[in-house]
Nucleic acid binder design. Structure first.
Lengths: 186, 186
DNA sequence: TGCAGCATGTAACCTGTTACATGATTAG
DNA sequence: CTAATCATGTAACAGGTTACATGCTGCA
């Protein structure tokens, strides 16, 4: 089930960051502005409403800091429910659609996994990602083989970048999987 | 300037496809459902309103086919204004933000270029893409070097996939650029 | 005759963008 | 004291998602 207003990329990024440390809205903004967690809107018009939604859903909880001023900053942290929700999101199976259209979100999910879900979940995630991505790459290559002759130069080239990107992701997933399994045995 | 309702990925995909051949709403849907132009919503709730917006803006024009039935299908084609608009969109400069957050749109743009804009525009596009992507890759690598020690395993791994993806794109851009320049000389 | 696929559309809802507004704190 | 930065928010708008609704056409 899970409450509403909890399913966007931005919400996931917020939950993930708050799982590491409590942060204010502004603290989140700075992270979105200055680190590689790009792609997730840093605009106040997105962040503050998202925080309100997450708090209304009981997934995060804000405590006023700097009590003695009229404009207190609020440090948010995950609630137990929020932690459970994050685990649930991180543990979801990977579908073909995720690989085709939501690779960014998959990466975001993976980046928050360490220490939050067990190694077996991470292993399963990477295994499924490698498999689905390979499958998708094969489909793209078939399409390429079938239609390359009809496509203009730029269409053909764009499609072939799609193939290469899939290759890069699948290779990364297999390599990371191997690293993880090595660590586990040690 | 350019009218409203014309700037989304979906609108660009529609303009691009109609620049190749006239299509009905359903024809567009089928393409989104069955080819590599994934990532662009195939749902009627997105496509039909988008077509209405583009027609209202004077960029496309629908002609009723199958006149004698009560539910005619409508074949849309680009107007002169729509062609001009598409050329303008395809020719826009590439910014850092595009490379960080809108790579899909850049690829979509490139895929429609052949025959629609001159070789010099394509060359400039690829040159700028390679350059910006390289720059971005360097920034990611710097960030990786600076924070890898603090990051948990999965965060580090996700960041390193970001680096590899940038490498793949930059390499593709340089290679495609070389191909294009060779073709030109022939 | 009835079902699958062709074909078009609407309405409610959700969330991000842009632009604006406000006040507090700190460094020069 | 004043400018930059910290810090939080709202409102209008745009566009996509989901779900629903409708009717036609060809075929078994």
């Amino acid at each position: 089930m899970t409450e509403h207003g909890t399913e966007s990329d931005l919400s996931l990024a917020i939950l993930g960051l708050l799982s590491i440390q409590p942060l204010s809205g502004y603290g989140l903004r700075k992270i979105f502005l200055t680190t590689a967690i790009k792609a997730y809107s840093a605009s106040p018009g997105a962040i503050y409403p998202a925080l309100q939604r997450l708090e209304a859903a009981g997934l995060i909880e804000g405590r006023a800091e700097r009590r003695n001023t009229r404009r207190p900053s609020v440090a948010y942290r995950l609630t137990a429910k929020g932690r459970a929700e994050l685990v649930e999101i991180l543990s979801r199976p990977i579908g073909r659609d995720d690989v085709m259209r939501r690779m960014d979100k998959l990466l975001l999910r993976f980046s928050f996994m360490s220490g939050f879900v067990g190694t077996s979940v991470m292993i399963e995630f990477l295994r499924a990602l490698a498999e689905e991505t390979e499958r998708y790459r094969l489909a793209l290559e078939e399409e390429f083989a079938g239609s390359a002759a009809d496509l203009p130069f730029s269409g053909r080239a764009a499609l072939s970048l799609g193939v290469e990107n899939s290759r890069t992701v699948a290779r990364w997933a297999r390599r990371t999987l191997a690293e993880l399994e090595k660590t586990r045995k040690t």
